[in-house]
């Protein structure tokens, strides 16, 4: 019995106009075109999407092997990037 050697693809679906593509899962396919067809059959059986992206899992570059590590630290200590950092009196309108 030969082994299924179809590569793994990650699938991203745009739920409707105005939204980003969002990762929904993965599947195996022999090539890109088949991956899009399979993604349609597997992940959009009930109008869950208006557009699909597929990409070979092997082609994805990830930030780091671990989801929570120093890579994100530079943004962790910059509280001044958030509006809540600034104290404004309550009676200033439209802020």
């Amino acid at each position: 019995m030969s082994r299924n050697s179809w590569p793994l693809y990650e699938v991203f679906v745009r739920g409707k106009r105005g939204l980003n593509h969002v990762h929904v899962g993965s599947l195996h396919a022999a090539d890109d075109e088949m991956a899009v067809r399979h993604a349609r059959d597997l992940y959009t059986r009930r109008n869950e999407g208006v557009s699909i992206w597929v990409v070979k899992a092997a082609d994805i570059t990830a930030s780091s092997p671990d989801e929570k590590d120093p890579f994100f630290e530079p943004s962790g200590d910059k509280v001044y990037r958030h509006p809540t950092f600034y104290e404004i009196p309550d009676d200033v309108p439209h802020m």
Binding site: M1, S2, N4, S5, W6, A30, D31, M34
Partner: peptide
């Protein structure tokens, strides 16, 4: 079902390799 699908999986891989 799995074994009957063997040739399909193989053929699709061969086709993809030829196209690339």
């Amino acid at each position: 079902a799995h074994e009957d699908g063997d040739w399909v999986r193989e053929a699709a891989i061969a086709h993809a390799a030829k196209n690339s």
